[in-house]
Design a protein around this nucleic acid. Structure first.
Lengths: 228, 228
DNA sequence: GACGATAGCTGCACTCAATGCGGATTTGCA
DNA sequence: TGCAAATCCGCATTGAGTGCAGCTATCGTC
């Protein structure tokens, strides 16, 4: 492999070897076929063989693209990490570690292509209903946390050790996740509603960390409630 | 099934139907056989058939005792929940929700037969090394969180709604998990030191939820450093 | 443009977890 | 004692995932 780490998601397919372009097209085809089938027959009701057939590849080939059936639903290298890293990198001089994390979380929510894509919506639904998928999601979340904690620790070497950073990040993410869990219980499958729920969850979960003026902001935001 | 919910773990086998006694003996035999084999050949290197043979039952029967191979490692209904429920039940009149959770955490830490049992030690090792087991563990943790949040919400109806309670519990558990993840990685096996660093990390991460005097307490505690 | 090296595709056979079924056995209880 | 229910367990089956071996398509080079 001549290229070190391919810029997996962003760059268009121009200037890539034919092999590589073909490979990505197949990859995309697999994902699309799978999403189609999952929505039609459900996750458990769809076999890998079904997906392979729909994507017009051999069953064996599927596993050279995705290590497992769940992997299919978590294709992109986690955007949460990049958001957090960016927030850390662009921190102001008197930002506390908690401030940085707050900004990171808001960013994730803001530029959440997370929500728009069909895969993302499906994923969220399946995380709720299929234990195997949920397990995989939690695992990835934990990995992301650890990575973010590493960066945060590096950015604040004087006030945070590795353990403290991990605890702080864990507390943030845990709060949001916990709140979201309850909120999603009462939400249908409407993506817009889900997005709104996420926002609510963050406001509720992170309130204790907000400084006074931020709390007012949060209240404003939840009061205006712009419909779409 | 004449008995509603059997008091699974605590009560001895006296005064139980023969069937029930037999069943528990087999269950225990399965667990012991499995632990033996896992330690000898590793988790993945041991098949369910192996376990069944060692426990002198049919392979098919295994699955009438445990729904899956992982389930084997999480037999007891979560002790964390009971600890938390107890802490909530015995709360003082001016305990804040966060105080209660802190106490629950200390209790879990204190009477952690968690640590002594052979199964528990093995489980901890496997959670770290086998993704499937880790997934199952995370899942159970999330369930426990939700249950605790429900109780907490019921205990403080005026100050916590469901979402707020879930966020609070999530933050606690998230902080512990995050810190523990790092602590376990740096495999210093001194439990006392680990417990201390865990407390410090928690105090720091959860500061926003603690009252002023608690913050002082936290500082005191980390200063005096009582070695058990 | 031909050619050898190599990456990727695929069928086949295999292991293992997990489930359904149906018959045999044991236990509870009247 | 005898019937009903719980339990056990072999057998067959499905589906995920892997290793292997052979084939084809692509790449870089001359």
């Amino acid at each position: 492999m001549p290229i070190g780490i391919p810029c997996d998601t962003i760059c268009g397919m121009a200037e890539l070897t034919l092999r590589e372009r073909k490979r990505r097209r197949t990859r995309q085809a697999i994902i699309e076929a799978a999403v189609e089938l999952f929505e039609e027959r459900g996750y458990e009701g769809t076999t890998v063989a079904d997906i392979a057939e729909a994507a017009e590849i051999g069953t064996r080939t599927f596993f050279s693209y995705f290590a497992s059936k769940e992997e299919l639903l978590f294709p992109e290298s986690d955007s949460r990490i990049t958001a957090a890293v960016e927030a850390i990198a662009t921190r102001g001089p008197d930002d506390r570690p908690a401030d940085v994390l707050l900004r990171a979380l808001r960013n994730v929510n803001r530029d959440s292509d997370e929500m728009v894509s069909r895969v993302a919506a499906l994923r969220l639904r399946l995380i709720r209903s299929v234990p195997a998928v949920r397990g995989r999601g939690l695992q990835l979340q934990l990995d992301a946390q650890r990575e973010i904690a590493r960066h945060l620790c590096a950015a604040y070497p004087d006030e945070l050790d590795e353990v403290g950073a991990a605890a702080l990040v864990g507390a943030f993410v845990g709060a949001v996740t916990g709140a979201l869990q309850v909120l999603l219980e009462t939400a249908g499958d409407d993506p817009a509603a889900m997005s709104r729920r996420l926002q609510e969850a963050m406001d509720a979960a992170l309130r204790p960390w907000l400084r006074e003026q931020d709390k007012l902001h949060a209240q404003d935001r939840s009061r205006e409630q712009t419909p779409s």
